[in-house]
Design a protein around this nucleic acid. Structure first.
Lengths: 251, 251
DNA sequence: GGCGGGTTTTGATCCGGGTCAAGTCCCGGC
DNA sequence: GCCGGGACTTGACCCGGATCAAAACCCGCC
């Protein structure tokens, strides 16, 4: 069991009802907009009206499917979600893993259809934002527009990093550090990570073979960089990992 | 010499002054917004005031540089631009090539600094849009906001494609077809392409060695798929290329 | 506790594409 | 016209990581 009990839930397990505005905002990708930009009650209520909390989904269930009309984006509330594309040959390509507070679906905008599937990796709850409504709201609340712009921009930068030609070591080190940062941002330990996904998903995401991931993790462990126990990973030397990943992380 | 005379200029060489609104709009990435959404004069004038046409830049000159504060996005008016990242090791990684009418710089939003360099591949003229001003305008003109959202979304999808693990053949076929589509959209021939960039840039962009690009192009030629003469490429069988690239292009 | 399926590890082998090293071609300058 | 340097091609060889195969592990279930 991880220190977090193996379950991603943020900020706290009991925050499951609709809660008050404060609670709502700390959980969601738009949190900063609401909390720091000081919008009036009216505006916040608009955002609230627009959000639907979905019923929990279980591992393997699909949030949306490739080809479905793009209608909404989703913020993860609890659990972890992966996005993937299945190509003509039936090969799966994993595009990303999403933690609580992160947004999925923005890539559907361009073609007006989702270009990938989004799949729950464990039990997941989500907030659904109707995109047409959200973009109207964004014209009234510049903070929302900016947040959306920034999030999309971030996705572009991230995707570019994944696309670079890096070695297996560089990729895996960068992957661990990236997860570490994102966990830390959400109040979890930065050095004790619980990987929710099977090795094969990590491998696929990094465009490596599962065997390679296994081997590199073992080597990292033998070198004292990390300690692996099943899906628990303890980063023993984030510094040395950072050095390995320096080209990927860039600055 | 290409049928276009080797120079990308759109819509016409003499359209170099500020021209009238009609002219301006057909040249620019926001063209559709202006022409089809039927904004009033006032709104279009706002967009006009915001744009600055830059002086021509020559091959090798930089539009913006990695690390500079993000202040504006640029639409290519004439010529071709590449974006690249130089990593710690000094290795260059090319992120994209941009034709007239395409936008660069949106990826700078996230960190408020440009995450890459943008370099002219030949003689280039640009339109500069101050981003703070543009985003204010976007709150008044939903079409602008939507265009920006869509363009960023497109970049995310494209970046993801580049990131997939595809063979050299798949990559190169997809690259040629992608260029073909983008040239065609702009009124150039879809089957006779003039590659402005050296082989080494193509290779780098596709994460291949220049030698591999050379060999694959030759094999494509031997198989009757294309005809290569220096930087002129004639697509003889777009259909068979599409079949090769089907996994990358995905429908 | 023992059985069965999925996940992970480990070892052996293979191959696509990278690297290295020569050419060859092309074009611009004198 | 000749020379020089960059871009491109071609061939020989090599290596990182994929693939194949088999074992070990893990956990839920009867």
């Amino acid at each position: 069991m991880s220190p977090q009990g193996g379950v991603l839930r943020w900020p706290s397990p009991q925050d499951q009802g609709d809660g008050d505005i404060q609670r709502f905002c700390t959980t969601c990708a738009f949190g900063r907009v609401c909390l720091t930009d000081g919008y009036d009650k009216r505006a916040l209520e608009d955002l609230h009206c627009l959000v639907e909390h979905t019923a929990p989904m279980h591992a393997g269930e699909e949030v949306f499917r490739h080809g479905e009309p793009f209608a909404a984006i989703y913020a993860v509330r609890a659990g972890m979600v992966k996005t993937r594309r299945i190509d003509e040959q039936g090969r799966e390509q994993i595009l990303g893993f999403f933690l609580p507070g992160e947004l999925i679906g923005l890539n559907g905008l361009y073609t007006a259809r989702y270009p990938c599937d989004a799949v729950a990796l464990d039990t997941v709850t989500l907030c659904r934002f109707s995109f047409p409504q959200l973009s109207v709201l964004a014209t009234r609340l510049p903070g929302i527009q900016e947040t959306l712009f920034r999030l999309m921009s971030k996705d572009i930068v991230n995707a570019a990093l994944l696309g670079g030609d890096y070695s297996a070591d560089e990729r895996l080190a960068a992957f661990l550090l990236n997860l570490s940062d994102r966990f830390a941002e959400r109040g979890y330990s930065a050095t004790r990570l619980h990987l929710m996904m099977p090795r094969s998903d990590i491998a696929n995401y990094l465009r490596l073979a599962p065997e390679t991931v296994s081997r590199v993790l073992r080597r990292f462990q033998d070198d004292g960089l990390i300690e692996v126990d099943k899906r628990e990973v303890h980063l023993r030397s984030p510094e040395r990992l950072k050095h390995l990943a320096r080209c990927v992380l860039q600055q």
